[in-house]
């Protein structure tokens, strides 16, 4: 049985794909905490750029996949910027520099710069998050959480099962909506659908739990098929990440 290499396999075998999930998660946290110390637009822009570039080069993410993952987040960033421009507290400050007057609305330089900084922070978070999600298999994340971070197995494997059931829930919703239509009921987004979805989710959860129990889950100490260990790669990524954060913060000041 010859298997074509899937896009997911390509990413999993990349530098970022082979790195420990916890390393990547820690880098993301350190970056985002570092960005909290600045309101200038430069650092988040640089961090976002580094994240996207390493996702494409080190993570072997296809540009189209990356764009698709980021699409909804651009929208969020846009909303953050707009609402901060319009509703920024600085707009009511008489000392602030006025840039424009739109009807009753006064827009100031200060509100504009805060809005930009916040928007760029969202862009940075989105970029880092998307690259993390696209280069980290849920299984590897669960392994890292259980083995390195000592997260309880019941919780970690439960979350994995729930994650894997997401496509199933989407199908449940589609089927229930079609079932309503063929029975002549109007309103394909009726609130009653929620009840049906909930019943199906609970029943699916029960069955998966039963199947896991039948395969010896939670019956004693588990051994590990996939061992999680840190390598030079993780060290290199970590050092690189800290240096780029410091550089980003220093460069712009």
């Amino acid at each position: 049985m010859i298997r074509p290499q899937t896009i997911a396999d390509r990413r999993a075998s990349s530098v970022l794909g082979r790195a420990d999930a916890l390393t990547k998660l820690s880098i993301a946290f350190v970056w985002l905490i570092g960005l909290a110390f600045t309101t200038r637009p430069g650092p988040p822009l640089i961090i976002a750029g580094i994240a996207l570039a390493s996702g494409l080069l080190l993570g072997r993410i296809r540009p189209t996949d990356l764009l698709r993952a980021l699409a909804p987040l651009w929208l969020v960033a846009g909303i953050v910027v707009l609402s901060n421009i319009v509703f920024g507290a600085a707009n009511t400050d008489p000392l602030a520099t006025e840039v424009a007057q739109v009807g009753p609305l006064r827009i100031t330089m200060e509100a504009l710069s805060i809005a930009t900084a916040l928007g760029l922070r969202v862009v940075a978070i989105a970029s880092v998050g998307a690259v993390f999600a696209l280069t980290t298999e849920p299984t590897r994340l669960v392994d890292a959480l259980v083995q390195s971070a000592r997260v309880p197995e019941r919780f970690a494997y439960g979350a994995l099962a729930a994650y894997q059931a997401i496509p199933r829930f989407a199908e449940d919703l589609t089927t229930l909506r079609q079932a309503r239509r063929i029975r002549g009921l109007r309103g394909s987004w009726h609130p009653k659908l929620l009840l049906g979805l909930l019943v199906l989710a609970i029943r699916h959860g029960d069955r998966v739990a039963l199947a896991m129990d039948a395969r010896g889950f939670g019956s004693g100490p588990r051994t590990r098929y996939r061992e999680v260990h840190w390598t030079v790669l993780d060290l290199a990524l970590g050092v690189g990440a800290v240096i780029s954060l410091l550089a980003a913060l220093a460069l712009v000041s």
Binding site: Y157, L160, Q164, V208, A211, M212, R215, G220, T223, R226
Partner: peptide, 15 residues
């Protein structure tokens, strides 16, 4: 239970 074939076969052994 698991995403990849070999991980799923191993799941029962780990337990």
């Amino acid at each position: 239970v698991m995403e990849r074939v070999e991980d799923d076969v191993a799941f029962g052994l780990e337990g």
